[in-house]
Amino acid sequence: MTTMTPPAPTRAPARVPLLRRLGTVLLAHPIVRTLGPFVPFLLIWWAVAATGSVNAAFFAGPGEVWQSFTELVRKGMMPSYLGDSLERLAYGVGFGLLIGLPLGFVVALSSWARRLTWPLLLFFQAIADIAWLPILIVWFGFSLTSVTFVIVYTVVFPLMLGIVAGVDQVPRELVNAARSLGAGRLRVFFEVIVPGSLPAVASGVRTGLGYGWRALIAAEIIVGTSGIGFMMFDARRAGEVSQVFLGMIVLGVLWYALDALILAPFERATVERWGLVRQMEAAR
């Protein structure tokens, strides 16, 4: 991006007050920028709860939610439920990637495989993952297997569709260039097609995880043995509003962490690097 900077302008002495400058610099800080909007949100939440205008059976303030958080942590329920949810998600996503990645490339690269499976892929993607839960319960009972299976299912299809779209996006010229430079089929695959399709693969992973995440919550509510989803629904049955609120916040924070620690770095390594290449081409 540095290439885009205009020629150094002649700088005149500062005229903006120090305080305002501090403000703009502070506002530009990533942590402030990320957490900023949550501050007014929290304040409004707190204010609504403090006025007591909403029936306490339907609404919990930040204080109560914090209380039930510390309580659940002390009792060990929160860590154990959280662990269960994350474990299921990890298994589901892990198996989903293991199955989806190779199958995706096979479908993308083999014309026969694609002809035979493409309509099926679209159809199975169309059967909402949660609709699989009843038949899975018939097969595996109310168990971890059922939950994991649903997540695998939600991850595999968007991933495969993403890979096909990604491979199709790789310009033919790049493949031809690599071949004329003496690369064999296997090397073309690993050196050109795989990296070239990564941006679309990344977005497939993101879509899959987004769905998988929801499927996990739904499955935990329906299968109902443990996990954050179960905790929320159980609390709802018992009328513990603050735990329902807590569950939602935990889920949100968890997704945020997942996004910031795993998805975003992966995308930066692929999508944005590609984006940068394109931008430089455009600037020229």
């Binding site: 700088r11 500062a14 005229r15 305002r20």
Partner: peptide, 15 residues
């Protein structure tokens, strides 16, 4: 026309 650079607070004359 002058711009104010929000980061440094400096005034940059354009025109």
């Amino acid at each position: 026309k002058e711009y104010v650079d929000h980061y440094t607070g400096e005034t940059i004359p354009a025109i």
